[in-house]
Design a protein around this nucleic acid. Structure first.
Lengths: 223, 223
DNA sequence: TCCGCAATATGAGATATCTCATATTATTGT
DNA sequence: ACAATAATATGAGATATCTCATATTGCGGA
């Protein structure tokens, strides 16, 4: 982890200003942190000292279960907060957050800003909006996972994450995210290839029939 | 649905004051609504006109999927909000909310209070806290549902909802909540009885070995 | 009181998904 | 450049869960 100082810090503060999210002057409190790919930004089970706001890169939220299984709860993208649970709730089991790519965040120190943030209607409104979206998404994912087989959820995931007509996510990550075994994930990929929806190219897949995938994915949605 | 007026309304305002959740005077805006058991408080897919706060009774949030399956997303209990998604997000697919028992709520009209609420740091802080807990719970339920078989989740549910050593939830509701088929739910209940954890009494179950259930349930938790 | 619907129950067969074992490739650190 | 580790791949067998068919039981409304 690297902390940007002076001009470099200043450059980020100007380029990615988040002043509009607050009523008070936040800039003087902001630290700018850079994390390398695969670096853990927050360790599972420990309490972070900052509220984070992602400005470049992306990250993943993980939890480890008692049976050793790991779940990828969600992806964190640019303009997302994390660490907000610890800001609001005195007791909370902290999930692990790992950078998927080089990631630059604003880090807002709790000890200097907690009180101010918790009094700031502008910030709280944005935070509440962010949380309501997050909670809705989780609820949707939850009910979908219980109501539809992997086929549908995977079709959706492929379309969401494809880069043009090329899909190239790592299977191991997807297993944790969709909550299925590696073996089963491959079965369903094989089916999609058999049916001609996808074509395997090395370790990527080319989407040949997006409409078919769309049909499978659309079934999930209404929300 | 019945709207309490005059003295009856006044009595509720005094007995269950929620003034502490707001900086501005909320009382004059509050309506007091009573819903009968099984009545729909919010219709799925329509926009409500109120933010609700439950003072007596409980309710259930439902969503209907395209394949006809119904998911019970969550229970709403006393002191919970609902309708907050519609307060914060201009576009949102509204879930259905149904009273499980006779339910009395404060109903805060959007058209008169939205602007005030969205400026009120006290209210927004409470709302953010409520949402963060909700979102955390959903995330937990989501990952648990993907990581553990029904056996564990049902054990937890039985202990959470049992009245002393008697469990008496309706199977059909539990199916929607835990996202499993009626058939499978009964299989697992039969297993619990076989193993001597539960004993069937008419259409209730007596918990004979809470420790065994606890062992199954504890595996879920770390959060 | 009786009818009809909702809830409960149970069997049989299908399928979605998991576990484990074992190979074969990438990728990464030194 | 090589060894170690992570990721991909595939088979075989188990099990968690679903669908559908069919009965039985409880309960609220006419």
């Amino acid at each position: 982890m690297e902390i940007y100082k002076n001009e470099k810090r200043q450059r980020y503060l100007e380029e990615y200003s988040i002043g509009y999210l607050f009523t008070f002057r936040i800039d003087e409190f902001l630290e700018v942190h850079e994390y390398k790919r695969d670096e853990w930004i927050i360790q599972e089970g420990t309490r972070p000292d900052f509220l984070f706001y992602v400005i470049e890169g992306k990250a993943k939220i993980y939890v480890t279960h008692q049976n050793g299984k790991v779940s990828l709860i969600n992806f964190i993208n640019e303009e997302d907060f994390f660490g907000e649970m610890e800001l609001l709730n005195p007791i909370y089991y902290t999930k692990g957050v790992q950078a998927s790519t080089k990631t630059v965040c604003f880090a807002i120190p709790f000890h200097r800003c907690r009180a101010k943030m918790l009094e700031d209607a502008t910030f709280l409104r944005e935070l509440a909006k962010f949380l309501s979206v997050k909670s809705t998404q989780m609820a949707a994912k939850y009910t979908q996972s219980l109501s539809f087989p992997l086929e549908n959820r995977l079709a959706d995931f492929i379309l969401q994450t494809a880069d043009g007509e090329v899909y190239k996510e790592k299977h191991v990550t997807v297993c944790d995210f969709l909550g299925v075994s590696y073996r089963h994930l491959l079965y369903v990929f094989a089916q999609f290839c058999d049916k001609g929806y996808l074509q395997k190219e090395g370790r990527r897949y080319r989407i040949l029939q997006p409409n078919e995938l769309n049909g499978l994915a659309r079934v999930l949605m209404n929300e």
